[in-house]
Amino acid sequence: MRNTLQYVLKKLLLMIPMVLVITFLIYWGLDLTPGDPISYMFSPDQLANIDPQKLAEMRELYGLNDPFFIRYLKWLWQLLQGNFGYSITNGVAIKDLLAQLFPATLELSLAALLISTVLGSVLGILSALKKGSVGDNLLTVAGMIGVSIPQFFFGMVCIVVFALNLGWLPIGGRTAPGMTGALAHLKFLILPASVLGISLTAGVMRYARSSMLDTMNKDYIKTARAKGLPEWRVNLVHGFRVSLTPVVVLIGFRLPTLIGGSVVIETIFQWPGIGNAFKTAVTGQNYPLVMMIALFSVLAVLMASFLVDILTAILDPRVKLE
């Protein structure tokens, strides 16, 4: 047990230099990128009308003239003091911005995760049980199609069909004024979550299927069968439970991407989440916001891979933590 603890601790400590390196690289990259936040505050045509001297003064005011290394250190120092900084475009504290954005992205991600996990594992296991049947092939093909259609394309078609032609669901957005109750809210969530969820389903399905097939070949399943247990019991209790492990791991790996938000889905459905904000921030060179979102998504990726490591070690006794 001491070893596990040590391992966990070591892994956690290792994350610190990694985060430093990554954030440094991002900051550097942003610095190398031509243009700065000031040049994105105005439309190109209007830039022609603004006195270059005023722009220079603004740069000085926003601290953009310091060497980037100094600015990085400043940023880091602020961060260590718990100050996330302020968005350059509107001066709003970034912690407030994140508090607005995270719930939206999380909600969408979890809904999509739920859809893909339930749909994926059920279909995957069904097709494993009926391996080689017409149904299995059909499901595989359906899964393939789900994963092979470009997301934005699928999303647009869904908007045209369900929102415009049928008028069942709103075209996008997350809330409307005066909206009360979860049901009204759900209407906004259904389309984006389904599109995102369906595109993720095929992966889960594939995993669940092969892992179920794997499990069904295991000796203890054969033993269970030989003991004369009813088929459904063998499948459900013995097969299903065990074969879900890799699915859990897969979900673990997905989570960080889901935290970062799906830029494409959020753009199409006007979902006010992290992904959307991140894209705007990066293209507008809104340093402080970019850095904080990047920091969180990097942390999420590192944490997830760390947790998956530990999870697999616990679930599979053959893997040793070293």
């Binding site: 990694m18 990554i22 690289l25 991002i26 942003l30 960080p256 991140f278 990047a294 998504s297 990726v301």
Partner: peptide, 9 residues
């Protein structure tokens, strides 16, 4: 590092 680097950036 490279895997956790946000692709969009």
């Amino acid at each position: 590092v490279f895997m956790s680097f946000p692709q969009l950036i």
